[in-house]
Every structure is written in structure tokens, then in C-alpha cells.
Amino acid sequence: MDLHTVTEVRDARRREPWRPGDAWLGGGTYLFSEPQPHIRRLVDLGRMGWPPLTRHPDGSLEIAATCTIAQLSRYGRRALQAPAAPLFEQCCRAFLASFKIWNMATVGGNLCNGLPAGPMISLTAALDGTCLLQAQDGALRRVPVTEFVRGAGVKDLAPGELLRSVTLPGRALACRTAFRQASLYGLGRSGALVIGTSDPADGSLTVTITAATVRPVRLWFPLPPGRGRLARAIGAAVDDTGWFDDIHGLPEWRRHMAFRLAEEVRHELTGGPADTPPRTPESHAHGEGAR
């Protein structure tokens, strides 16, 4: 879509004062998908030269905001030697987008949109990611992904501030993972997406709920919980206003699927008794095995 209100495109390497009507341009798949009447100038991040993916000596992985979904997918399939590697492809596939989108859409763009169904939010929240934010004066601050996304479309970003990268700790990449996703339609947007991680170092378990909730919810248990304790923890973490409501699923259905998929994830990673009612044709839930 043409953005007919845009009068200027600037290179982000040129430090210029931020002004009303400015917007960062990464891949542009969202910006050019619908009218943006408030935007007057695009500040292009495409030539910043940030390495898309960097594995640090401590085992952590830094993902640049400008890393594309295609680059992340290839890295997870071919280069990342870690138990959590299959989760990268699973979350990339949750986009249900064409190869053209994969080659342009960026990890940072998906995070900064802050949409509940954003699969890069799901991936980075589940793996305990931390956002590196850069202000106009160059000042840096770090915010956990679970705090960066505050609600549906609401982010912890000041005017002119940008998301520079997301770092996943090495211990999270060493975890076994389990993935579950549900949508109302076979190729529909995620209505509930639940990821579990099991840490071999200390035996802890995390369950992260996205898409069903207005913001990512990450629950950490020092020891694997029973199904009752898990259900109580979800109920305490998400009140009635925390379940998302749109055309892709009513809050009641999203809540039901989140509890159900969380129990499946718990069972898969712990081998404990599972309470999983039969699937219904209307609930296109699907998942991969633990890794």
C-alpha cells in the first residue's frame, strides 16, 4: 500500500532530531499493509549493518531487530547447536506467511507491533529474552520481553526510542522445549500459543502463554508442578481482563485452550499425568514433540 502522507525517507545512520510523524522502517511488512495517516517521515534501519545473529562466548544469542524471519529460520535449522533450536522454526511457521513476507519481515518489527499473536514475542518471551533499547541520545536500557510488551499493541518504547536487539541466554537455549498452537481455522491466526521449557541444570519448568492473552505470561516453577498447581498459577496470573478478544477467538475459548495446551506441555516435558480432553474439530490445535 502506498503511504501517501510520507514526504521523506531518511537513512537511520544520519543522526537527526526525532519529530512528530517519524516512524522507524525495518522490513516494512506492517507499515505498508494498511493506511498510516500519521506518518510523515520514515527512518530506514536497513543500512545499519547490524549482524542478524551473534552467538556470544557465554552461550547467549543476540538477535538484531533487523534480522528477518528467513534468516532466523535458517539459523535455527542449520547453525544453532542447542536443544531449543527446533523452537525457532516452530515459531517462524506460526506466522503462516508467504516466503515474500519471511524475507522482509523482521524480528524487531514483530516485537514492536506488540500483537498478542506475534510469534517472535512467543519465542523470545519463552526463552527469557531481554530487549536492548536505544534512545535518541544513544542511551541504552534493557527490558525483559515479558515487560516490553505491556498489552495488545502497547510497548515500553519512548518517542524516538528503538529496539536494537533481543538477547536469549545460553541456559534457555539449553532447555528442552514443547510447543502447542491453536487457531479457529486450519490456516488461521494463533488463538493460543503455549511454550514450555525444561531446564536440565536445575530441573525447573517454565510455561509461557501468548496469543490467548493480551501480553505474554511466563510462569516459572522451581520444580515441575502438578496439573492442579499449574492451573492455579495460570488463574492467578491472568484475570478475566487478561484474555484477548477479537475475531480470531472469544476470551472464553482462548482461556480454555490456554489451560488445555499448558497441561499438554507440562505432561510432555515432565511425563506426569495429563488431563487432556478429546480434541474437537472446531479447535485446530497442533504441536510438535519435545526437543
Rank of each mutant, 00 (worst) to 15 (best):
L193F: 03
T124V: 03
A233Y: 08
G129Q: 01
Q71K: 04
H284E: 10
A70D: 14
C175W: 02
L80Q: 12
P225S: 04
G235V: 03
P224K: 01
R229K: 10
A172Y: 02
I63K: 01
F221E: 02
C91H: 00
G235D: 07
E34K: 06
A158V: 10
D156N: 08
P225I: 10
R260Q: 14
F148S: 12
A182F: 07
A262N: 05
E161P: 08
A237D: 01
V9E: 06
I39W: 04
H267I: 12
D156V: 12
P281S: 11
V145L: 05
T208W: 00
D58Q: 13
A201M: 14
R232C: 13
A105C: 06
L250R: 13
M1C: 09
Y185N: 11
Q71D: 07
Q71R: 08
R74E: 13
E288P: 02
E264G: 08
F259P: 08
G109E: 03
L132D: 13
A274H: 15
L45H: 15
R14N: 09
W243R: 09
A23V: 01
D246Q: 02
D275E: 15
W18Y: 11
G170S: 10
R14H: 14
D246G: 03
Q71Y: 01
S204I: 07
P278S: 04
S183C: 13
G49F: 06
P222R: 04
V194R: 09
R19H: 10
P52K: 14
V214E: 03
G287I: 00
E62M: 06
G151P: 11
A70S: 06
G160L: 00
R176H: 12
A231P: 12
A178V: 09
P169H: 07
A258G: 05
D246M: 02
I69F: 09
H284M: 14
C131G: 07
A85G: 06
A125H: 15
L223K: 09
E8Y: 01
L140M: 07
L187T: 14
A231I: 11
